[in-house]
Amino acid sequence: MEGVPVITILYFAWLRDRLGRSSESMPLPEGARCVGDVIRSLAGREGEYQAVFGTQGGVVRCAVNQEFASPEDGVRAGDEIAFFPPVTGG
């Protein structure tokens, strides 16, 4: 649909397990300008979202368009926003 600003959200590792999905497409929350606004919107959902993005939000990391980001970083329609725990590779 023309004109509806949408963002893609990806979840990895235990966030995906807890939330029961690996991705979703959602309208950019009204007035949302930064990652923190998106986090607050997700934390406002019921169930696991509230736990993952509210009380445990401190350990969640994020990336915008595949670059590590912080809550102050901006978001725009069409962005790919990923949420995940601290990385444990190597």
Partner: peptide, 14 residues
């Protein structure tokens, strides 16, 4: 390279 792989590459181990 190993130090950065462990902290900056998006891998997760279960």
């Amino acid at each position: 390279v190993m130090d950065w792989l462990k902290t900056r590459a998006p891998f997760w181990k279960r």
